[in-house]
Design a protein around this nucleic acid. Sequence first.
DNA 1: TAGTGGTCTAGACCACATG
DNA 2: ATGTGGTCTAGACCACTAC
Lengths: 230, 230
Amino acid sequence: MTPPLGETIREHFERQILAGTLAPGARLPTEQQIMAQFGCSRMTVSKALTALATAGLIERRKRAGTFVARPRVHSMVLEVPDLAALVAARGQAYRYRLDQRDTVTSGEGHLAGHPALHVSGVHFADDRAMAVEDRLVSLAAVPDIAAADLNAEAPGTWLLHHVPWTEADSRITALGASPAEALLLGVEAGTPCLCVERRTWRGTDPITHVRQVFRGDSYELVAHFGPGAS
Amino acid sequence: MTPPLGETIREHFERQILAGTLAPGARLPTEQQIMAQFGCSRMTVSKALTALATAGLIERRKRAGTFVARPRVHSMVLEVPDLAALVAARGQAYRYRLDQRDTVTSGEGHLAGHPALHVSGVHFADDRAMAVEDRLVSLAAVPDIAAADLNAEAPGTWLLHHVPWTEADSRITALGASPAEALLLGVEAGTPCLCVERRTWRGTDPITHVRQVFRGDSYELVAHFGPGAS
DNA sequence: TAGTGGTCTAGACCACATG
DNA sequence: ATGTGGTCTAGACCACTAC
């Protein structure tokens, strides 16, 4: 029924900070004072404040004290859904068509020098082309993919289920469909499309490099920022 | 010189998880066993494992034990730079031109019913139009903006310095420039553009609603995912 | 029901940066 | 120099749940 004491302390200051009662730069009471105020041990206070510091709400400086962190960093949480799951959630039928599959060793990029599986194909929602995808997968890091049936399961979905990555970056741009892309998507060349280019690593080993071009009228990315969970 | 013991424990398991030695779903030793292994108290172990759980690397279940978390969440950290800072970082001259400024009370959207300042203008990098922006700012939540000189400082930059938000969401899409947008950007109508639409709140009070349309060839968004810092 | 994690205590020593 | 946070100990009781 009653929440843990440490949680109570954490929420006490979190509320004041979010409400602005404690403005950025303001000093919080010392651990000793908080101990006295809540009638608990120092360890409990420390854990509560450590959690707030981890969340980026406060900043702790030795000998100086604890302060409300300066205006927040401008970062948001970008959702990166699995396409199959996304389409299914929309109530549409998902399909992936594998168009090309070969083995290459590229000379540049983050997979440079690694033998890689090169696959390209198209993602469909209800038999309407949604995106074209061109992907390289390192055969050194993911040898099992050589035996995978990538027509039954899209490469991205297969990788998601078999090879959790530890590091990734993405570039998101807008571009006009090239003639080849336009043909695959069933639109006119130059039609605005959303392009997502992503590289992933496991530790320092490159895993995959993918470029997806989406019809601009059938896909959007969403991001969220907030104090609570995602 | 020697790192804190709790940190050592945390890194010990983090390394094993990222290296794959501890596969997703694998069970970690119990706290008692880790205590014995590292010769420390249970509190120290608990703090180390709690940090890993907060970071999402492990999952703790009572009576069952501690396990490596299943494949990672499909979310990444999206950087949302201030345009003025971004352009300056590129070594270009930044300028914002305010084109329109009036007061409205919209009937719909997340600012419905709130009197709001409506501003629209263009962001320039080296005197080349980069983006058009259309924005509503709640006058109830941000009365001070009525007196701000939004020609000297873009509305987004002004808000960034004066009103930290606590919650926000964004939609990212690709679209073709409308005739009006094309005129302002100096491109042909239909040119692919990246559109970012963002709503922000402070607590439950809506702050601002902004729609920015960027020339597709001069802007990109980047997102990152990784175990370390940003 | 027994073993697991969740939480808490009342101390302690230390490093450090600020006044 | 002093007070701050950083870290750690050796216990303890409790809630929960898988066995």
